[in-house]
Amino acid sequence: MTGLVIIGHTEKIWLVLIGLTFAGALLGETGHAGWPLTLTVFFLIAFKGGIVIDYYMEMRSANTRIRNILRMFVALISLLVIVSHGWGEVIRRLTTIN
């Protein structure tokens, strides 16, 4: 059938990433500081990072150790967003040089 556009798995993954990017940009223009914004940013980093690792880098079927290191990196930086918002004062105290 001519003219039929087939959207494959890779295209769907790309569309999800692009959609989440626009959602993030909208949030950047309209969002206010607070837990809802913090949790959304946590989700955006963790989810988009996970998609790139699993589908772009094909880590779902790769060496478990390498996949876990990549996932740990994304998990750590996204968790730091929550820690920084909820416990910023603790971070400040721990990193103050007297």
């Binding site: 940009a25 949030l27 969002g31 990072g49 790139v52 772009y56 994304v74």
Partner: peptide
């Protein structure tokens, strides 16, 4: 390709850190 995707992952954190998060 793997190296190129790694720069993607890092940018996906940099973008919200500086343009979205408050």
């Amino acid at each position: 390709a793997l190296y190129w995707h790694t720069t993607d992952i890092i940018w996906l954190a940099i973008f919200p850190f500086f343009y979205i998060l408050r």
